[in-house]
Amino acid sequence: MALVTLSGAHLHTQVLEVERPTAMAASHSPSSFMSDSPAIAEAKQALRARCLSVLKTRPAGVDAVLCARLAERLLATDHAHIACVWPLPHELDLRPLCHQLNAAGRHVLLPETPPRGQPLTFRLWTPQTALLRGRFGTQVPDGPLIRPDLVLVPLLAFDRTGNRLGYGGGYYDRTLATLPGIASMGYALAAQEVEQLPTGPYDQPLSSLVTEQESLHFD
């Protein structure tokens, strides 16, 4: 299994042995289509269960702080089509950011989750757009498909080399692989940082990452 400990504000992980996957990732998205080795796949799954608890026990008000930092970063760029995320119950809530970007004249896009093995697509959202029920409890705007020029990427854990741990469906890795050169900005709590993530051959590193405490840029 992956042993996770808290040191200061950060998670630290050491892969010790594998354990059976939990049902957590399956409830959010189907199992990864990608060919991680069994040991890496099991280590990732063990770490997911522990990192999810960080999100579920986060302090009140931290989502608003993170949204403000993301808005500051994004509005300082010239990206016009920004793919955001409409949260599931336990996830960091970017809805205030969506409204702020829309009010600033940016085009806010939300992902539509396809069947297994396909990349995400993104639809235009405005405060007036109807939201339809998507896969795995997601909300999908009833708007036109648009290609983003920056993608905000949710995650359960990250390290300082730009690696991220997702939910296990491979959707964002698959999507970023089909959008070469696109800016990918992860967002997370500082407490979701781990010393080093187990990675597989299909994992797509982030361009940058924003927490409630700092902004990171990766080569």
Rank of each mutant, 00 (worst) to 15 (best):
L101W: 12
L206V: 09
G61T: 10
G137Y: 03
P180Y: 12
S31C: 02
L75V: 04
E91K: 02
P180H: 11
F136V: 00
P96T: 12
H12N: 08
Y202T: 04
I40A: 13
L55M: 13
W125S: 06
L88Q: 10
V108C: 08
D149G: 08
G186A: 09
T5K: 05
T138P: 04
E193S: 05
L120Q: 06
R106Q: 10
D36V: 06
Q128S: 14
A104R: 13
E19R: 11
L16P: 00
L145W: 05
L70T: 03
L156Q: 06
P144I: 03
V210Y: 01
A60Q: 12
H107W: 11
L120D: 07
H107D: 07
V194W: 00
P87Q: 06
L110A: 08
M24K: 00
T161D: 09
L156W: 03
A64Q: 14
L179F: 10
A49G: 14
A103N: 12
L124P: 01
T77E: 13
A2M: 10
H90K: 00
A177P: 02
H81I: 01
V65L: 14
A46V: 03
R160P: 00
R123G: 06
A46G: 15
T22V: 00
G143D: 03
Q192T: 03
M1L: 07
E42I: 00
A130T: 13
V194Y: 03
S207D: 09
G117Q: 07
G200Y: 00
C84S: 15
R95Y: 05
V140D: 10
P115S: 13
